[in-house]
Design a binder for these strands. Sequence first.
DNA 1: ATCAACGTTTAA
DNA 2: TTAAACGTTGAT
Length: 767
Amino acid sequence: MALSLSGDDEEYDSESEQQRAANRPKPKVGTSAAIKLPSNRSSSGARRRRTRCRKCEACVRTECGECHFCKDMKKFGGPGRMKQSCIMRQCIAPVLPHTAVCVVCKEAGKEDTLEEEEEKFNFMLMECSICNEIVHPNCLKVNDASGVVNDELPNCWECPKCNHAGKSGKYASNLPGSLLREQKSLKEEGDASTAVKRRPDREETPRYRPEETLHRQPPLLSPSNLPRPRPEDKLRKKRKLFDDDEEEDLGVRKKEKSDDPYYSKLLHHIKTEEEDEDPYEEEDEEGRVPHFRGGVERRGRFGDPEDEADERDSRSSLLNPSVKTPFGDSDQSLCSSPQAGPSSEGGSETQEKGPRRKARRKRRLPNRELSRELSKALNQEIQKTEDCLANENRQPLKVEPQTENEEPQRLFRNELGDQRPHLKNKEMNGTPWELRHFYPSQITPLGFNRSTPTNRPVPPHSPPKCVQMERHVIRPPPISPPPDRLPLKDGKSHVIQREVWMKIFGYLTHQELCVCMRVCKTWNRWCCDKRLWTMIDLNRCTSITPLMLSGIIRRQPGSLDLSWTNISKKQLGWLINRLPGLRVLKLSGCSWAAVSALCTSSCPLLRTLDVQWVEGLKDAQMRDLLSPPTDNRPGQLDNRCKLRNVEDLRLAGLDITDTSLRLISRQMPSLSMLDLSYCNHINDQSVNLLTAAGTTTRDSLTDINLSVCNRVTDHSLNFFKRCGSICQIDLRFCKQVTRTACERFIAEMSVSVPFRLKEDKLLQKAS
DNA sequence: ATCAACGTTTAA
DNA sequence: TTAAACGTTGAT
């Protein structure tokens, strides 16, 4: 259907079947019928639906109750139309259903009956992402073709036949589908263009190498009554199998500089896939691709020169599709029969190879991602900057500027002055964004960012398209990412447990964590644990890229600082929709257009909202922000203001008036800290409103900042006397407030609550 | 039989 | 182009 990827596909008998399937409702097929399917399902589009592993963190956790899909559920008062899993519960490694059996021997996976890790592979069920056949690798009587394991999904590969036949993959992104929306794009893509686009990917497939002399596997032992494999076993097996040469792909990537757009695209796709494969391998690893070039030594198989040769091969064939491996063009049956794979064209060496070791591990992408995942522009930029990346990032441990202004200036220079957009892109996409963090002390003498809207960072020319993000599968991070112990080269595990490492990592800064993430894959995962990233600070990171966004989602921070960034409404909307646990959001200096993304029913229940100096945020916008969302789904009961839990509200530098304050007072019953500094319209009447009888703010306010509010006078101090919980009143630089009045306030309050003048016109409760 | 939710279709 | 809808699958 959507996946007529090349002319080859038309050879499939089932092609017409696929077309039909796309054009009319599928006939009802019960579970039992589905089991019968394999015989005629070979090469058809009908794939076994995967199901939850029920083991991963996502599967184990409870529904968030906050996300889109939760809100739809009947149990959360929704209409139950969407029938989708909670965003936070999207399985990281969906498994084949229990009813899946080998198309050859009709038996289930048997890997858990075996001891040897490598043998297990031969007896686990593998689903081909191209022809959809599910087989035991050992049941394939093929000798000379290599299956390509897709470790994006458990039990997923491109079977030797398809791989050998050079079929372009449909891939198996059988992940929870809610975030995979590309099928349309794929469908709309013409066959020709699809074929062309897919070619490099196909060519990237590593071929069997004669040097790999491995003993043949024993013939199939087919105990028909073996217990079913547990999904987790398969997962574990995969991990184990792949961890050893985990960095091989990194090696491929790091070694290759490309001027081939296909390759560049592929490069990026691989990265994307890596994200998908495991939430803990993400932009850090991507970003470090160039770093690896001169950085961390390769270990174990990683350093195997054969692998490098192989990689070069795949690279060259990638660049030159006409270059084929000896077996690439052989006449292969097209998966119509499980027995019909390539036989012995491979020559004598091939005979020594069981399917096991031929299944070269290679990350493959789900078709959807491969098709349109990333914008062409982005890929082109990546391509152009490959070389620059290599050079710039040769020093992976280089410490980023820490001073207040250095980094932003650098960014600004790139964003504004540099006419080489690829450099900008390189900056943002080629470097781990965590390393680009800086922690400026933006505190002015008054404790506020004195930047005014005139100093607002100018958005870059082409802000990254959040659209891209929609097509990424972003899964929530597990709380304790596997493995439990660091796997060592000799197959053993490091003595120190993960949780101990986690404690150590807990002492590191984000920058240091980023360095650790480049040490190995396991550390990369561990260092991404959301406990280490409860607060993510992208303050003044002027260009927010899709990678950053996905990185944020995976870390599920409770606190996010996007101040003075160019984040767009779409991006922010995308983010907050996926951060139901977000409690602190800082958006100072952003545009109202972006901030308006909060006016949705998916806005998390924030406790702290910082919208200082937001351009265009006035009373009308404040009203929008504080109104109940209007996009509630039918049946959705909760139409309360999404900011009702805000305790800390920062509105410095806004042109808001009492109109907004009334709303705030009404809608934020828990408001404790309120920053109204630099608000020129705020006056005594405003203070009166906030502290009037019957308002919740009267008792909830503990900390108010009215510095540089020139309309506030001594009279306001009288209003504050009626605030039951007030602890700090900042009236610094209020021209119409006198020190005398402050002292009088202290004197009068001293009867009940002792206050002191911490600074001139800064009143603080003496504790 | 019931529930959850995957993957595709349809609507906006 | 994206989100919503929904038929159907898979687990229990």
